[in-house]
Write a protein that binds this DNA or RNA. Structure first.
Lengths: 219, 219
DNA sequence: ATTCTTGCGTACCGTACGGTACGGTTCCGT
DNA sequence: ACGGAACCGTACCGTACGGTACGCAAGAAT
């Protein structure tokens, strides 16, 4: 892959640089710091260009979401044959990645922005964030647990329900807490391990650690 | 208990009425609709009184959170002797109540407000909402699972971790989705039942429905 | 060289907000 | 009956935002 190949079809490099500045402002100062004048000043561009490129403020916010989503690509090279240990390893990797993504500065800032903008009727931003932000993660996890089932390592009726169970076990109320300003976990890996343990106890086909503690990482 | 005994020490009835109007405005129109002028008009009071009573805008928001929290009281009359069925019943009731509370208009609006106001450093609002809003629910659930353990019906090392597991199984990512504008579940009871099933499979001391479907509520 | 495009910098406009000040009214204590 | 506190309605102020308009410089095309 060419290192400077720009896969993002939406915007020119200049516009991407502006969006990067917009994200920086948003992360550093919250929504109130993301003003058209401030962005123009920070990105060395004119307000007129902003409106020419993104239409209006909501267009800018949408572009920021799309830009950020395009930056996060999930590696889904999982052609290998699955064993129980391999499945567990992949699940824990997914859990750690998920926790890391959710705790990221930009993710939190964008979620705060969309939620703050969101009303009872559901804003465009919310839909967009859910669609762009979650699709990658969802697909990766669904593919993984589907593979686990086909390999006879997992057992469930509804893949969607099983995925939601896994998600809940991993994240619990941590996401909302962080959105409200609380600091994240001190050890994501530990949480990931516990969540996968529980998930395999619920949906695994082999004896899990529920009774006998696992050999690794003695607590 | 006297029917009009006002347990809220913070505010006078008049002020509570104003706060009620403020919540109404917030629920109906989002944060942008909650303006001092608008509230004064809707509540038939003067802006001067608003600032006299609540100090400034943040004081008003804090007062709204406290007011709403004071309205939600959890009945914790659980002196009865616990059996396995009773524990399950109480857990499911808790789950249903939790889902109902989180999906409530006022709860969603206040959470959106606090999150939107929240920066990286954590705002006063976020802390306040977490403290006032979660304490009741947390205490009720912790008391319940603690009782379950003492009765020999539950098994876990860390009560806090077990509670977070329960919470995650019940809520998953539903809260964030609703905050972003998605509609809630169609059947909270079903979700509650599944979550409690899973929780008891993980932490119960008796054979659960993991292999044999329960007799009640055939899916 | 001339034109045309692009976009920067700045000035500007209307609006709406948070917060304050003031006159008039109601009500309560004395 | 009188005085003062509480409070309503409205007008007001400074500010800062989203969005628009204009002047000018730099680069490409012809």
């Amino acid at each position: 892959m060419r290192p400077d190949a720009n896969d993002m079809p939406e915007f020119t490099p200049r516009q991407n640089a502006v969006l990067e500045q917009a994200l920086r402002l948003l992360v550093e100062g919250g929504e109130k710091a993301l003003t058209t004048s401030g962005l123009a000043r920070a990105a060395n561009c004119s307000k007129e260009s902003l409106y020419k490129w993104f239409g209006d403020r909501e267009g800018l916010l949408s572009a920021m979401i799309a830009h950020q989503a395009a930056k996060v690509r999930t590696h889904e090279r999982s052609g290998e044959r699955l064993t129980a240990d391999l499945l567990r390893e992949h699940l824990e990797l997914f859990a750690r990645d998920l926790l890391e993504v959710l705790a990221g500065d930009v993710s939190l800032a964008l979620n705060r922005l969309s939620i703050g903008q969101s009303g009872p009727g559901g804003s465009k931003l919310g839909k967009l964030l859910l669609e762009h932000g979650r699709r990658q993660i969802d697909r990766r996890a669904m593919a993984l647990i589907d593979q686990g089932k086909r390999a006879g390592l997992l057992r469930f009726e509804n893949a969607d329900a099983a995925y939601h169970t896994l998600y809940g076990l991993i994240v619990s109320d941590l996401h909302v807490r962080m959105l409200l300003g609380e600091p994240g976990l001190r050890d994501n890996a530990r949480q990931a391990e516990r969540a996968v343990d529980a998930f395999l106890t619920l949906h695994g086909t082999q004896k899990q650690s529920a009774d006998a503690p696992r050999v690794s990482a003695g607590r």
